Amino acid sequence: MKVLLVMGMVAGGVGTHVRSLAESLGAAGLRVVVACPSPVVASLGRPAEGVTWFEVPIGSRPHPVRDRRSVQLLRGVLQGADVVHAHGLRAGALAVTARKVARGQRPCLVVTSHNAPPEGRAARTVYAVLEQVVAHGADLVLGVSPDLLERAARAGAREPRLAVVAAPVPVAVTEEERRSIRARVRRGLGLAPDDDVALVVNAGRLSSQKDQVTLVDAVDLLTARWHGQGHTGPPPVVVVAGEGPARAALEARITAAHELTDVRLLGHRADLPDLLLAADVVVSAARWEGQPVWIQEAIHAGAPVVATDVGGTRTVVGDAGLLVGAEPGPERARELADALDRVLTSPELRADLRRLARARSAQLPDREDELEAALTAYRGV
Rank of each mutant, 00 (worst) to 15 (best):
E348H: 14
I254H: 03
H231A: 10
E177M: 03
P64R: 07
S70A: 15
R46F: 05
G26I: 07
R69L: 14
A122P: 04
A298S: 12
Q72D: 15
D271G: 07
D271Y: 04
V18R: 01
G242V: 08
V239E: 01
L25N: 06
V343C: 06
Q209S: 10
G29W: 13
E49I: 06
G267P: 03
E150S: 15
A279P: 00
V316H: 04
S113C: 13
H17S: 13
R69S: 12
A377K: 01
A135T: 08
L375Q: 11
S20V: 06
A377T: 11
S346F: 07
E243G: 09
G325P: 03
Q212D: 03
D338G: 11
D211C: 02
A218M: 03
A172W: 04
D147N: 14
V133F: 09
V133Y: 07
V41T: 15
V293R: 02
L25F: 12
S70N: 13
V173G: 07
A339D: 00
P62W: 06
L275R: 13
L30G: 06
A135V: 09
G104C: 02
H258N: 14
A248Y: 12
V324R: 00
T376Q: 15
H227R: 13
L275D: 02
A155S: 15
V164E: 00
V101C: 12
E372R: 15
R154I: 06
D280M: 05
L130Y: 07
L275G: 11
R106I: 01
L222P: 00
A248F: 10
D352G: 13
G92M: 00
P328F: 04
P118D: 05
Q72A: 15
V310G: 05
V237K: 12
R342F: 05
M7E: 07
A301W: 00
A48C: 12
G76S: 10
Q79G: 13
G329F: 07
A377M: 08
E370K: 10
Q209E: 15
Y127T: 02
R287T: 10
G120H: 13
